[in-house]
Nucleic acid binder design. Structure first.
Lengths: 230, 230
DNA sequence: CCACATAGAGAGCAGTGCTCTCGAAAATAA
DNA sequence: TTATTTTCGAGAGCACTGCTCTCTATGTGG
């Protein structure tokens, strides 16, 4: 068991959680750039040096918050999707991406942390990969459902890209057609492009009906990955 | 004339340019987070306080760099596009977006500055708008060309989004069909989603053939805005 | 019980953005 | 030309940052 070897181990995970909680509050309020270890320590009433017993550096704390943000997004999307879990694939697709957008609008700084510019130098530690994959897994699950129901069309695929598409399919979803997997990866990036543009102000004075615009794009991208019209 | 009222005014713009140049070097080398006014001053051999005669704050310096980055991107894309200026619209479309991607890969930190997460609090000053619009202008120009040649198809448009599309068209490109304008805005965000994902490492271990993948997406998005196949 | 590992405090270092004052130099007015 | 005002740069200083030490209590495993 990794739980409660004693009062000390228990205290450690409690303090770790408290640090992350305070840091997350600060992150949500001021953004990653202004997240200060000293301020976190101050809020918790402890010396700033003591914080280094739990996180060896500011970047490590940020990495922990990044993983949490991925999980938070994944959980929010899964929750939003749950009530449409038995709906047709196209509907599930819409619901999941609208869930993603809603989470992003509600957690702009967390979103910026994971899908904006990488904060420190350049490392995206491999530890973030599993948390980051939750969304993609759900999307592939929806596509698999459509495939099973034989309502999944094959998106066009340039001949030159076929080997790459087959490689991606083998890695990500061997039971789906390569055309679909390649289209899905593109749609994935494009959807976060839409969300990011809205969130970071690039639609300022350009798009007014944000909800309608996003919904329309989600629909179009659904067809681009082979899903039938909603 | 705003030029050279005297040696003083001339010196001022020279020093201003030198500051921006040093700052840009530091930005390209270390990223926006590590851009330090004191380091810039040190590099120029002047007191850090003297720098405040030229830029009232670090954020103002960053804003200046943001505008420069937009201009740099716009110029790079226009230059790349120039040699295909008389090619068919679909070819011009491909060339311009590949130019955008190339610039982004060559200037990752500048790209992060303008299309990544907004750096300070949240303001995207209106002064950045004209520089930021150069790309969109070029894209609309290409679409206008296709429209004039009668090779521009009408993308599908949900009935509910028509008013919004008409509003966008009136604002951005009154001589283009609303369906095209709406599709173009979406494609614009989606293309930067693709570029950003590649640049920020989200395609790590997912997409290998980055060039082919991007090219394919650009082609697909060309058709999504009504351009004929290349 | 005791040696050991651990958590926390406090001081301190090098760095940051930014503000202030003060002297020199340039531009302008008389 | 002389006098005045504006501008520029330097230096000191403030409050803050991340991070590294050393030192002292305090739980923990043998």
């Amino acid at each position: 068991m990794s739980t409660a070897h004693g009062a000390r181990a228990r205290a450690r995970i409690e303090v770790t959680a408290a640090i992350k909680e305070a840091a997350r509050r600060q992150l949500a309020a001021e953004g990653a750039a202004k997240l200060s270890l000293r301020a976190v320590a101050r809020e918790l009433g402890m010396a700033s040096s003591a914080l280094y017993r739990y996180f060896p550096s500011r970047d490590e704390l940020l990495t922990a918050l990044i993983i949490d943000a991925y999980d938070s997004l994944g959980e929010a999307v899964e929750t939003a999707h749950a009530e449409a879990a038995h709906a047709p694939p196209a509907r599930r697709w819409s619901v999941m991406w609208e869930g993603a957008r809603t989470w992003a609008l509600g957690h702009p700084h967390e979103y910026a942390l994971i899908y904006g510019s990488p904060v420190p130098g350049y490392k995206a530690p491999d530890t973030t990969v599993p948390a980051a994959s939750r969304l993609a897994f759900l999307a592939f699950d929806i596509l698999r459902d459509a495939h099973r129901r034989s309502v999944l069309a094959l998106p066009p695929l340039a001949a030159g890209l076929r080997p790459e598409a087959e490689r991606m399919a083998a890695d990500l979803a061997p039971d789906l057609p390569p055309e679909v997997v390649a289209a899905m990866v593109a749609a994935w990036a494009e959807l976060f492009g839409l969300i990011g543009f809205e969130l970071f102000g690039h639609f300022h004075r350009v798009v007014e009906d944000r909800v309608g615009f996003f919904r329309h794009a989600v629909d179009r991208l659904a067809r681009s990955v082979g899903l039938p019209a909603a």
